[in-house]
Design a protein around this nucleic acid. Structure first.
Lengths: 182, 182
DNA sequence: GTCTATATGCAGATAGAC
DNA sequence: GTCTATCTGCATATAGAC
């Protein structure tokens, strides 16, 4: 079966190898030759299939946050729960780091905007209403983004030391933005 | 005068050209040859003087925030004023962006930690007291870092639209962390 | 001492052989 | 569909001109 089959499997092998290496080492520190090696093919073939290293990067560095566990959360505890979900969703860290560090390239920056909008702004925006809902959602997304930045880009060890306390207290800040006390 | 003089001027010309180009285009997108060209010398000379492109980058990407205008600020308006100062200090944007994007290199990441600590955490920490002062300062620094991240790395145009309102409202969040209401 | 010319080695990408 | 050979441009190292 599948006289035309093997190309598809090879393409997927390249994609999977690239995803793993990009998440692990980022864009700049991952040579195309290493991706090819991990996939068991020639480096030229990687370019053949995906056009360029940047295309392959964009093909693999996607992120969709699962909203569902957040929909049932009562509004009074939404801020904290959102921080908790973002910090414990597996894929976020690697994708976020790779996109932030690669954002000197304009297309990677564009992807970062999309991911930020979809993963942080949108879930917050969905729970807000009122005239300034959009601004509040964007400020809350900025605050959450700042937590990821401090923990993962800067690597603030003292901030990471007590994760439960961090979730509780930083969550309370986000909560203030989502549903300010009267 | 100065039989040994011209080398000093050349070195400074290279340093100045490098600073301008790194701030403008970042680390990855600035070839050593461009720096040399802008300084009017050969590329090999740049390496001669500074050892490597990375050394030169670290030599130029420093940042010291001027604390003084913050020392007199009453504690009730400190959060807002701090946001205002950070957003309007000229050098911060370029240095911050270049360091964040270059942070895949371990020495650049280390410099980012230093700058984050010195420019964001320390001024906040200086105004706080109490058992949890350090954690509160780090959370406030994360929040401010998130603002820079959203505005400059992500490029959230909607957030940037009304700067005065942003300063007032995001400043209020930082204020909550600096001096929480009783 | 200060600088240039040139060489080395690695990266992404292309042409075309098999 | 896959690989070999090769091009171009990069950071960096060395030799030696002035």
């Amino acid at each position: 079966m599948s006289e035309r089959g093997s190309g598809v499997a090879t393409r997927e092998a390249i994609r999977a190898a690239a995803e793993r290496l990009f998440l692990d080492r980022g864009y700049a520190r991952t040579p195309v030759r290493d991706i090819a090696g991990a996939a068991g093919v020639n480096a030229a073939l990687v370019i053949r299939y995906f056009g360029s290293k940047e295309e392959l990067f964009l093909e693999t560095m996607r992120l969709t946050i699962d909203d569902e566990p957040l929909l049932d959360v009562p509004i009074e505890s939404f801020g904290r729960r959102f921080v908790e979900v973002v910090l414990s969703t597996d894929d976020i860290r690697g994708v976020y780091l790779a996109l932030v560090r690669g954002s000197g390239e304009s297309r990677i920056a564009e992807r970062l905007r999309e991911v930020h909008e979809q993963a942080l702004v949108a879930p917050l925006r969905a729970r807000l209403s009122g005239a300034d809902a959009d601004l509040r959602a964007r400020m809350a997304a900025a605050a959450v983004g700042g937590l990821l930045y401090s923990l993962w880009v800067v690597g603030d060890e003292d901030l990471a030391a007590d994760r439960d306390e961090l979730v509780a207290r930083y969550g309370a800040i986000v909560q203030q933005l989502v549903a300010p006390l009267p």
